[in-house]
């Protein structure tokens, strides 16, 4: 056993060399946007304030799970990015802290209403509309017409060509389900989902997977957030983006301060900074095509033009609540997913 101890001690020394000794102002940032965007935000905040940022990037579901697991001894300070629903759920469970930023009057109404529906425990930082994208090469190869509306996707010729995520595992797909219920009404909305089910070739686990598959030519049509589809097109894949004619729902990417944050002052500084136009303009550098929440921040030219898209009045409070979510998902599980394809 002593020898083992010696080996262990030896490896400790190796490890010690790699440990940092910094002891300045610091901030632990949980980031749920794309990696390079997260990196850029962290580094730019460091440059702007001199506060050291420890950034971890995980998907919003993973981050929510982590914040929940850590709730009795929080390790993170700010949670930035990711779709709004988990932020709302975290607010509902009291995992995040109330904060009213002085920057608030510079924001779009949808960002503020997101904050109000969560008792000021979260705020909107960007938004993106739901839609779909298709691989134009594959569409042509299979002699399919170009779809323009949600109802087009129900046509029998698209059988086996449509992909969406499983609403049980993906926030994007849940937004799709909730949007259909709000556009068509609950009964007709579920009829739509049943019709769609017949044409679906796979329910993916992750929300943006359908359009990535379409980009690689593994799938024809993917139901996703439009900015994800634009990203594929800008990356060079033959993807066309569609804003459905019936109108569509949208997500609000959010930011929250974690309840019991160890560096609360730094967290507030980051919060205010992240709502400023300078910080939100950083999105342009990393091909993030969401619409920023600060009115004076710029939007990319490639981004879907929100003024041309028919947005529904999405009820985030109702459809973001745990009970409604549970009910809709159970109904989808029982009435839709069990049907033969």
């Amino acid at each position: 056993m002593n020898r083992k101890a010696a080996v262990f001690a030896g490896s400790l020394v190796v490890f010690a060399a790699s440990a940092s000794m910094a002891h300045a102002d610091k901030l632990t940032l949980y980031c749920s946007a794309q990696e390079d965007w997260c990196q850029l935000m962290a580094r730019s905040f460091e440059d702007a304030t001199g506060i050291d940022v420890n950034m971890t990037r995980k998907s919003s579901g993973e981050t929510f799970a982590q914040i929940r697991a850590e709730s009795s001894n929080p390790k993170g300070d700010v949670w930035w990015g990711g779709t709004g629903d988990p932020h709302l759920q975290a607010a509902e469970e009291g995992l995040t802290a109330e904060y009213v930023s002085p920057m608030r009057d510079q924001l779009h109404d949808w960002a503020i209403s997101q904050a109000e529906s969560a008792g000021n425990r979260t705020i909107g930082i960007y938004s993106g509309a739901l839609g779909y994208g298709y691989n134009s090469d594959l569409l042509a190869a299979n002699n399919l017409p170009e779809p323009a509306c949600w109802k087009d996707l129900l046509k029998p010729e698209y059988k086996g060509h449509v992909q969406m995520a499983n609403p049980n595992s993906s926030g994007t797909a849940y937004t799709t389900l909730a949007s259909m219920v709000q556009i068509f009404g609950e009964d007709e909305g579920f009829e739509f989902m049943k019709g769609l089910h017949a044409n679906i070739n796979q329910y993916t686990k992750s929300g943006s997977a359908p359009i990535k598959a379409a980009g690689r030519g593994e799938n024809t049509i993917g139901i996703v957030f439009m900015h994800d589809a634009v990203k594929q097109a800008v990356s060079g894949f033959p993807v066309k983006v569609v804003a459905p004619c019936e109108g569509t729902g949208y997500e609000i990417g959010s930011m929250s301060i974690i309840d019991g944050a160890r560096n609360i002052d730094e967290a507030k500084k980051f919060y205010d900074w992240a709502l400023s136009p300078e910080a939100q303009n950083l999105a342009l550098e990393v091909n993030a095509f969401q619409v920023p929440s600060n009115k004076s921040a710029e939007t990319s030219e490639s981004a879907p033009d929100m003024s041309q898209i028919k947005l529904i009045d999405y009820d985030f409070k109702k459809y973001g609540s745990s009970d409604e979510r549970k009910r809709l998902l159970q109904k989808w599980d029982e009435d839709v997913s069990t049907l033969p394809q």
């Binding site: 929510f64 499983n166 049980n168 595992s169 993906s170 686990k205 549970k326």
Partner: peptide, 13 residues
Amino acid sequence: STEIFFAIVGAQY
């Protein structure tokens, strides 16, 4: 294994 993963990180924790 994937079901477990998505039971935790999915839309429904």
